[in-house]
């Protein structure tokens, strides 16, 4: 595979990086962020009864972590303009794909539930949950 890595002029471009100190700082940041999302399961988390907020928070933390890894470990911070072309389209497509599944798959029970006997429904949910009074919105209780 002669053409692979020795193709002359473009082999030289070694990306500058931030050095070991930088990596350690990012590492500490990642650990802290992981701790933060883990904290949401603990009793001190003030928004325990607001799963919507908690989940948004956790996804924001996950995005921040992914961004840290991308920027520093994968060196995208120091790369030239190609980084946008090679990363953004896939992300946009991924979001389009996931979003387009929502109406038909995400809401698959919604129209059926609207039509179903309401009494029937409530009976099922109480039993399904057993003696735990958690509705499926409530965060896990540990």
């Amino acid at each position: 595979m002669a053409t692979e890595d020795s193709s002359g002029d473009n082999a030289q471009h070694v990306t500058a990086t931030g050095g070991v100190g930088n990596y350690i700082a990012v590492f500490v940041g990642l650990c802290l962020l992981t701790g933060m999302s883990f904290l949401t399961t603990s009793e001190w988390w003030p928004w325990r009864d607001q799963p919507g907020f908690t989940r948004t928070f956790m996804m924001a933390v996950a995005c921040a972590k992914a961004l840290l890894v991308l920027l520093f470990f994968m060196h995208l911070k120091h790369e030239a303009g190609w980084k946008y072309i090679l990363t953004l389209p896939a992300c946009v497509m991924a979001i389009i794909l996931a979003a387009s599944l929502v109406p038909d798959v995400g809401f698959r029970l919604r129209s059926a539930a609207d039509r179903a006997e309401p009494a029937n429904n409530t009976r099922e949910t109480t039993i399904e949950r057993g003696q735990e009074n958690a509705s499926d919105q409530a965060p896990s209780d540990n």
Binding site: A90, L101, F107, L109, D136
Partner: peptide, 30 residues
């Protein structure tokens, strides 16, 4: 290649999200 992997996991994770949040019930971690 990573772009293709993004699409691969997008299909899987997207599936998980819609199946989960559309489900009639979902178990707690316990």
């Amino acid at each position: 290649f990573l772009s293709t992997e993004v699409m691969f996991f997008a299909a899987l994770i997207g599936t998980y999200i819609v199946l989960r949040f559309g489900a009639a019930a979902w178990p707690t971690p316990t």
